[in-house]
């Protein structure tokens, strides 16, 4: 049984839980304290307010332990705000948070809520069908480092990437019925299972 944690400080937590509950043999836990990070095989950082979640990670002393775990191989997937929290650089902002994903990301990149939109695209590595993509005040990636694999570019903007154990998407698969990305992340966790990283907290 694979145990997946959802960082539950704030944001679209229940939506990810509901998606994962539709997949067999997955145990889902809400992660609110640093010590819980040791009990999981992978972590999802959900959409929410990146500024708020970032501050709470610091306030609750979770930032450094989580960063160390990710650097030593804990599979992690950030959606929307989660992508911003993972990034090594944020455009027009000196502050970074987990500082693990070698990209430069722009917050609210499409503009205000009036520019939120839905689209769909085929991502060969993830699924053999078109996946619905929902962008809510979404960020996108402007620059990637050499170790980052681009999974999807939409209208010239990078919106899904992978870097070793890290997955990041600008959009919200948890707001759709499509489970492709959740299954893709689970397969990623399986590939990393057995590699030891828990000792690093």
């Amino acid at each position: 049984m694979i145990k997946i944690g959802i960082l539950a400080l704030q944001g679209a937590v229940i939506e990810h839980i509901q998606s994962l509950n539709k997949i067999e043999d997955i145990l889902v836990v809400e992660v609110k304290r640093a010590e819980q990070l040791l009990e999981i095989d992978g972590l999802i950082i959900p959409g929410g307010e990146s500024t708020a979640i970032g501050k709470l990670l610091r306030e609750y002393n979770m930032m450094e332990p989580l960063k160390r775990l990710i650097n030593s191989g804990l599979p992690v997937w950030g959606t929307c705000a989660g992508m911003i929290l993972l990034a090594k650089a944020i455009v027009n902002d000196e502050e970074v948070y987990l500082d693990v994903l070698d990209v430069s990301v722009r917050r609210n990149a499409y503009g205000s809520q009036l520019d939120s939109f839905q689209s769909s695209a085929m991502i060969e590595k993830v699924a053999e069908h078109d996946i619905p993509l929902i962008f809510i005040r979404a960020p996108y990636i402007e620059k990637c480092g050499p170790d980052v694999e681009i999974l999807l570019t939409l209208d010239g903007n990078i919106v899904a990437v992978e870097q070793d154990n890290i997955l990041a998407t600008s959009f919200h698969p948890e707001l759709t019925e499509d489970l492709s990305f959740h299954k893709f992340f689970i397969n990623k966790i399986k590939a990393f299972l057995g590699k030891s990283y828990a000792a690093s907290l």
């Binding site: 539950a8 400080l9 704030q10 944001g11 679209a12 937590v13 229940i14 939506e15 959409g47 929410g48 307010e49 929307c80 705000a81 809520q113 939120s116 939109f117 839905q118 929902i134 809510i136 005040r137 919200h172 707001l175």
Partner: peptide, 11 residues
């Protein structure tokens, strides 16, 4: 999309 935005404020 507006309902989805409000979901991001949860918690």
């Amino acid at each position: 999309l507006n309902k989805n935005l409000a979901q991001m404020l949860k918690g």
